[in-house]
Every structure is written in C-alpha cells, then in structure tokens.
Simulated scan of single mutants.
Amino acid sequence: MEQKYNVSSNPHVRDGMTTSRIMQLVVIALLPATLFGIWNFGFRAFLVVAVTVASSVIFEWLYDHFMHKPNTVKDFSAVVTGLLLALNMPAQIPLWMPVLGSAFSIIVVKQLFGGLGQNFMNPALAGRCFLMISFAGRMTDFAVSDHFRGVVDTVTGATPLAALKTQGFVEGTSVPVQNLFFGNIQGTIGETSALAILIGAVILLVFKVIDLKIPLTYIGSFSVFVIIYMLCTGMGFDVNYLLSHLFGGGLMLGAWFMATDYVTTPITFKGQLVYGCCLGVVTAVFRLFGGSAEGVSYAIIFCNLLVPLIEKATYPAAFGKGGKKS
C-alpha cells in the first residue's frame, strides 16, 4: 500500500453551528421579551439594557486585553450574559448596579474560571444573585406600566408571587391569567410577558439551539409539586394559582433561556432529565417554603453545582464494560 492516509484527531464529524451563531440566535430569541420590556417600562428599561450589555462587553474586552488573551468579544457570549442580566433586573434600578453586576458576571464567574465553556454556573444568574444579596431593596423595587389601559406612568407594587406569598391564597384573588400571559404585571424587565418569552423559545426550538427535555421536565416537575402542595394543604386544585406560579415570575425565562445553558447543564440524556426534575423541585421548595417569593435564580445556580454529580451518576458505561463475566 503506497497510498498513505492522514487521520486527524476527533471529532471527525462537525456541526456547522458555531458558538457565535448560537449566541446570535439566543440574542434574536430574547428580542421579543426585551422589546416588550422596553415598551412596557419605557426609556428607563432601554437604558438598563444598553448599560448592562455594553458594560459586559467592555469588561470582557478589558480582561482579555490585560490578561493577553485572544479577544472573545466577537463570539457574542458577553452580549448574551449582559442581556440576560438586564432582563432579570427591575427597570428602576440605579444604572451603576448593572455595571457592578456585569463586572461580577464576566470577570469573577466567567473569566476567572477559564472563560466561555469553563464557568461552573450561569454568569448572568450569578450576577443577579450577587446584586440580590447585596442590594435586595433595589432589586425588588418593581414597577408595572399601565400601557394596557392607556396610561404611561409606572406604578410600583408587589409581584403576583409576592402577593400570594404575603397574603396567602384566597380563592379568586390570584392575578388574572391574561395579565400574566400578556405582561400587565409587576416584575423585572424581561419576565413579565410569558407570550414574548414563549415566542423566543419557539425561535430557539426551530433553529435547534435547544430541545424540550430540560424546559419540559423543569416546568412539569414544578407543576406537579405545586399541585401536590395545593392538595396536601387543603387548598384544592385551582388552575389560577398554578398559572400564577408558572407565568408570574422568572420561571418561563429561566426554564427556556438559562436552565438550557450548554456549559452548566448535563451532557447525558438521563442527566438532563434528572437536572430538569431537580430544578422543578428546588424552585418549588424555595417558592413555597422559603422566605423569598421567587426562587428560580437560586434554584438554577444551585443545580448548576450539582451537574458534575448528576453526570457522574448518569454517564453510560463504556461499550464492553459492566457486563457479566462468563
């Protein structure tokens, strides 16, 4: 055999989808929620989004520059981190706080652990939790815009989840489902409209950026837990109460856009199902029994830390191993 073949290292089959392309699609998918938040809360929301995204990109560039690393700004991961962080903040937050949150997300959580692909938890959620712990009052100063009734002024108040938490459940007092679905409620910039979030989720599914395993197991296990809670507490099944928990708060945004982060989720099929169930149960426990009305952000970063254990427990045995010896 005179002809020689040059065999390169694996992988031998590559997908045409690049990291920058994936991140660009995520940005496009987040546009419905972003634009609705800007329309709903006004120019102040636009400023928060612009400042957070810009500061995330700047911190990424500065770190790469001073650490003499290749510039990674063009992969759009910093844009996604900044946009997700902005959508998880109230519109009335002082503008220096998004800058501080961006610095924590990009420098501490992402870059100090090796950059994209090495972070141990979702950077945007880590930044949000950092701000929540440091400035709880400012991070829970929510507003709702009365565009739906022709009034542009914003009115501060409790979110639907906070109302359920403080007032307890009384039949007929939960927020109307149409307000939860279309976005006429208090909350952060990007979490109020379930419809806008679901439009973005469809974009991710159509372009195969994500699949249904983690979001559906997350939402499904959470729903089952809430239903069991209603039945065990003598509340009885009430669909409005369930939908208030599903659409009121960050569950939809977290399930479709942050729980599906490639870096911080298991790679095994069974692991993703276990991960989704853990997210649903932990979120329900935090919401129903914890001191906070929310729980999505803390649940996701807590389960991010469990991913190595989940992968170890669900990793399939190598071919030819684990069988019975004859």
Rank of each mutant, 00 (worst) to 15 (best):
Y5G: 01
S9M: 12
M17I: 14
M23G: 02
M23N: 07
Q24I: 12
L25C: 06
I28M: 13
L31V: 13
G37F: 01
F46E: 02
A50R: 00
A54R: 00
E60P: 06
H65K: 14
H68Q: 12
P70E: 13
A78P: 08
A86I: 10
W96H: 11
L100S: 08
S102I: 07
A103V: 11
K110R: 09
L116Q: 05
F120H: 11
A126G: 14
G127D: 05
R128Y: 10
F130T: 13
T140D: 04
S145L: 02
D146I: 04
R149C: 03
G150M: 03
V151P: 03
V151G: 01
D153G: 07
T156I: 14
A162H: 06
T166H: 13
Q167Y: 11
Q167L: 14
V170M: 09
S174Q: 14
A194K: 07
A194L: 03
A196Q: 04
A196W: 05
I199L: 13
L205K: 05
I219R: 09
F222R: 00
F222C: 04
F225S: 08
C232R: 10
C232P: 00
C232A: 15
V239K: 02
Y241W: 11
S244L: 07
H245N: 15
F247G: 09
F247M: 13
G249Q: 05
G254C: 06
W256N: 01
T260H: 00
D261A: 04
V263N: 02
T268R: 06
F269S: 13
F269H: 13
Y275S: 08
Y275I: 07
V282G: 01
V282E: 01
E294P: 13
S297D: 11
A299I: 05
I301S: 02
L306A: 15
P308E: 13
G320W: 12
